[in-house]
Design a protein around this nucleic acid. Sequence first.
RNA 1: GGGCGCUUAGCUCAGUUGGUUCAGAGCACUUGGUUUACACCCAAGGGGUCGGGGGUUCGAAUCCCUCAGCGCCCACCA
Length: 876
Amino acid sequence: MALASKYSPKEVEEKWYSYWMEQGYFKSQVNEKEPYTIVIPPPNVTGVLHMGHMLNNTLQDILIRRARLKGFNACWVPGTDHASIATEAKVVAKLKADGIEKNDLSRDQFLEHAWDWTHKHGGIILEQLKKLGASCDWDRTKFTMDPELSDSVIKVFVDLYNKGKIYRGYRMVNWDPSAQTTLSDEEVIYQEKQGTLYYLKYQIADSNDFLTIATTRPETILGDTAICINPNDERFTHLKGKKAIVPICDREIPIIEDEYVDIEFGTGCLKVTPAHDINDKALGDKHNLEIIDTLNDDGTLNSFGMHYQGKDRFVARKELVKELEAMGRIVKTEPYTNNVGTSERTGAIIEPKLSDQWFLDMKELAQPALDAVLNEEVALVPAKFINTYRHWMENVRDWNISRQLWWGHQIPAYFYGDGKQDFVVAQTQEEALLMAQETSGNASLTIADLKQDPDVLDTWFSSWLWPISVFNGIMEPDNEEINYYYPTNDLVTAPEILFFWVARMIIAGYEYRDAKPFSNVYLTGIVRDKQRRKMSKSLGNSPDPIELIEKYGADGVRVGMLLSSPAGNDLMFDEDLCKQGSGFVNKIWNAYRLVQGWDVNEQTPQTESEKLAIDWYKNKFAQTLETIEDHYSKYRLSDALMATYKLIWDDFCSWFLEAVKPPYQGTMSQTTYDQIIGIFEENLKLIHPFVPFVSEEIWQHIAKRNPEDALIVASWPETTDFNEKVIADFEFATDVVAGIRTIRKEKNISFKDTIDLKVLDNEKVNQQTDAMITKLGNIASLDYVDAGVDGAMSFRVKSNEYFVPMAGAIDVEEEIAKLTEELAYTEGFLKSVQKKLSNERFVSGAPEQVVAIERNKEADALAKIETIKASLKGLE
RNA sequence: GGGCGCUUAGCUCAGUUGGUUCAGAGCACUUGGUUUACACCCAAGGGGUCGGGGGUUCGAAUCCCUCAGCGCCCACCA
């Protein structure tokens, strides 16, 4: 059957993906084989595939497919994350569009909407991954709010609470006034913003004097509870022990002294607002200051805001400045850039706020996780991230794990009284009741008296358990699955979540399995556009991955993603790379078309040059395989692809197939053909992780295969020894062919016209390659000569000289010029080599091998110079 | 402010412990080609004083110092 010259991915991809699914190749269960496991970084359940996912999951699929070919029990666990704040924000926005406010709903009503949304949009992203060819074990698909996974989260919370690691604290936290929840430090993004530094005058009590302070947030003066000066600041000795009066609210506040104040900055006087600044809080604690919280949860001012009550903090700022101006209290203003914290999810400007929250004490938990990375039990790829990791882990701070949201795992703390400490932490309500009765000494408490903490846990408090919880391994030491699959092998993720997620998974791994969660962490780069801008929805510079797959095929896009993405480096995505990817796929397809179109005849004998080419390619393959394995072992997947790409395109297609191609209307020996098919099959195994679809398509075309013989479950080529001489001999011949082509090009001799070739064989090369040279150079006659040939164009490979006699007169001048240039270069080269060799310190100091190499170079150069000189003489 | 990293061809990047003709690859570019798979093709070719300066060494893209530019992470001084 005639095959189309253009490979069309669409139906091929659908066909083989469903075949793979039907046959259950992606499935994994506990067996006697060695496992190779990857857990997917769970994407947000309601998200859609973006380029980062494409890159990430392409890499994982390459690793998992290769492991499957290598005979491991390959298990790739897919799933999604409930993404507490992100999902809740989306649901709130959706409800708002429908005219419903979150606050009008009960918790249960809201959760119902959230689940509806999750069911509607959840899983879309997993379907998209299938289009990419992701060979996940879909039967294992997990969601962080599945009953078993939720159960793990609650168990871990209770356990850590009982261990004294989780505590409740009244602390300064990051408050997102838009989502009205706290955020962990990691969820706050600092951005440089142009602001104003206001210099404000405060009257000193019982005097007509004023002092001036500088602030970027004038609206917070209403929460001031002190002015602080540096005790060593001589300018302010007269203020010691005095009081100041806060403008507008006319509250009297003490002037305190603390060396914390920077004498150089601003005016040297610092206003202290313990409720709204982390450093001020510390000062306040130290000096026993009053705390006045002037903000509502939504970022508007509360009753302490007086006539600004109910106004947003930024509106209040403007108006308050006007009022102060009118009062003559603004000395001056100056522009000032400072870093403003914003919410990672909502973008709102974060307010430091004091509140009761749950914290996890990280210090001790982090230690084994730090050690594991430092001693490379867990390897970070690239290793440059080790330093960053260490720095973070050594300075790790307690983790604020509570969020004032509804979508997520509700904190299993139950309040039975009105006191802040009147609570118990328990796995279930029933358990909680018993504990509450006991703790309170009140046996008549009922379920109705218990109020569960309304807050939910930080999303990462469930995803940090992911490599364990997907196998139900928390608190189940004897679970067969976890004991088999854990620790997993590789984790592929983005460096931006090294701390959010990776570090915490390692911590949880040691705490709950007493073992690392994975051995290697492959940190990908960020996908950027050609202008190096991060791809984002708002910029509209991110192509739709599914459209790309439609356009270039999944194989093409996979290759495109990988062509320029060394680990840890950002990837400048360019659609042309996908074009190159689909070009590669098409090349493979056409190579197959060529081979399957040959006429094969049992009677046709195998030629010497066929044998030679096959021998060469097998050795070349083995040599390249070694390189490829080395790249894989270092997670240099782009390099592994490039090595494969060049093997297939240059070595296999351009040289091998051209060398064995039968003459026009000729036939090929059955032996040769079978060997070529065998080689083709080995190639397909090698490319399968990168281009799973086209490789399977060709594999199944080559022969009718039983399900157990599909390419996806074939066996990866073994590394073998290879003969470097065979490779070198063949490549000597390809150099000769290239020399012939250059002359053809220079002299405008068409490839269709035959030429003669005379060889001055100083190298005593393997003449078996002559047949190939004749074929690929389109040589009419190849003869060996003892001396240079006049009236011919010449070129040299090592010290061999090749002559192509010219029918017409050759341009002597031009030839002389060319040869003279080559001579000058070679002589210069010789000179530098001889200089080295005549250097006593080099000969005695350098390793023997290096010196020997230099001596070889000298000999080669000398021989070559001889041939060039001889040729020049012939021309004169 | 603290830490880490980067600077090699027009672009994106390799270059392991200093030593093979080490100055590389892919893409882009130039030129020539309807060679019986592929124009998503074939062939040939041009292109870099390895950011600047200094040092160590027989020998430096590679090690050290210094200057310049860029990026990232952490901290968050009103």
